[in-house]
Simulated scan of single mutants.
Amino acid sequence: MSAPNKSYDPVEVEALKPEEIERMRDEALAAFAAAGDLEALHEAKIAHTGPASPLSLANREIGALPPQAKAEAGKRVGMARGAVSKALAARQVELEAERDARVLVEEAVDVTLAYDRVPTGARHPLTTLSERIEDVFVAMGYEVAEGPEVEAEWFNFDALNFEPDHPARAMQDTFFVQDGDGKADSGVVLRTHTSPVQVRSMLDREPPIYVICPGRVYRTDELDATHTPVFHQVELLAIDEGLTMADLKGTLDHMVQALFGAGVTTRLRPNYFPFTEPSAEMDMRCYVCRGESVGNPDRPCRTCSSEGWIELGGCGMVNPRVLVAAGIDPEKYSGFAFGFGIERMLMFRHNVEDMRDMVEGDVRFTRPFGMEI
């Protein structure tokens, strides 16, 4: 076995020759200086300091040298790699400074410009309020039901116990849809209320039934501050065993408290509707004065005209004839229903004085309500 070659000259290793090490160093310094941006510098860094770079490969050759030759070769390669690292760091600082200066110019923002050149939008308050009402009843276990706006006269009137000569069927109260021959007695109308959805719900579902029916309705009213020919209603229907007026009253109280605040109650005044019996007009306690303005000239209330109560809508127990028309046994099941106009409730909640503001599409009306979701 031969002894180690102690006279081995590292200069004879091509990659470790002094002039070769200097060449590698100078190429790296030139590549860094020529890099015009940080991306180019990164590519030069990989090429001249990465694992496959010439200096890295030369550094690996040192391990094959005899002990007495490693020190000198390692010093030579280390000095070259140190110079390369120093030049790389210096060039990176220069390019980063140039980038930051360029970004300040290219991405400058003129803070003196008007901030609202593109104004924010807003959801229509009728949509927002309708969804809020739906949330109240969905939380109570009710289902949201929908139906067509162009409705058969049977659903809109007959199934709801409207007699053939009822005034609501007259053309001065209802929009009738003409048939193909131009006749208005086609038996099709633009629904005058969302009650047809209640009938459809009773036909499509088996009791118990708990549904809320919001939607757009049509009547031949003139457009003025308190009326519009197209408006929105929300109606509720509950069909189950043993339901009474007490359940209706409790439901109404919960609804007005959820929408107008704690402590607001309702009262029922006798009235007549073809589809409920007994029927009542529903009033709620004024949410502004809480009734304290009644008989008190020192505290007048514009909201309720100092009457203490605000009329909200109609309600009552479902007429047995309506249950029979929908195929439900009135001896076993009872139910209650109520309905009110969403526009009217919006006027109460937000002191809107003119209903025309809701339909004219002026963003100055909708924008204050914001983008509540």
Rank of each mutant, 00 (worst) to 15 (best):
F176Y: 13
H48N: 13
V363R: 07
A83R: 10
E277K: 05
E72W: 05
V103N: 11
I62K: 01
R216L: 08
H166V: 00
E39Q: 12
S201T: 08
E146F: 05
L252S: 10
G308S: 11
A168W: 01
A159E: 06
G147Y: 07
V105P: 07
E222K: 12
C301A: 11
L203G: 00
G147W: 05
A101K: 13
R117W: 00
R367Q: 15
G291E: 11
M1D: 11
G36A: 12
N161D: 01
E19I: 06
L160K: 04
R285M: 15
L243N: 08
T112K: 10
C286A: 07
E281W: 02
A122L: 06
R321K: 15
A97S: 14
Q172R: 01
D240A: 12
Q233M: 07
K86H: 06
G316N: 06
D362S: 13
F273H: 02
V13F: 03
T266R: 03
R290G: 06
I342P: 00
A80W: 03
H227G: 08
V256D: 04
V111N: 02
G370I: 01
S7F: 12
L16E: 04
A80V: 04
A3H: 11
L312F: 13
E281T: 14
M282N: 06
D181F: 09
L88M: 09
R60L: 13
S130T: 15
H42F: 05
R219E: 05
D181L: 14
V189L: 02
G187A: 02
L160A: 05
C315V: 12
L323S: 09
V352T: 07
D135G: 15
A64F: 08
R81Y: 01
T128N: 07
Y272Q: 09
L16G: 08
R299Y: 09
M358R: 10
A52C: 00
E292W: 01
A28Q: 09
I342E: 01
I212N: 03
R321C: 11
C289K: 04
K183R: 15
R349W: 00
P66M: 09
S334V: 06
E27G: 11
D329Q: 07
T127I: 12
M282D: 04
L38H: 02
L41G: 10
A71Q: 12
D26K: 14
L190M: 14
T194C: 04
T276I: 11
H124D: 09
A40Q: 12
L129P: 00
F365H: 07
D357H: 11
R23E: 13
V11A: 15
P274I: 03
G180I: 09
V93E: 15
A145N: 08
G335Q: 10
T192Y: 00
A87R: 12
A280W: 03
A326Y: 02
E106A: 14
S334W: 06
P330Q: 06
F157Q: 03
A47N: 05
G313N: 02
M345G: 05
N59I: 03
H48C: 07
S7E: 15
T265C: 07
P300N: 10
P67H: 04
F348R: 11
A90C: 01
W309T: 11
E331A: 15
I310S: 05
P214H: 00
L259Q: 04
G261Y: 08
V136C: 11
G215W: 01
K249S: 10
A40W: 00
G141M: 07
L203P: 00
T226V: 09
I212L: 03
E27I: 07
P229K: 00
D173I: 00
A170D: 03
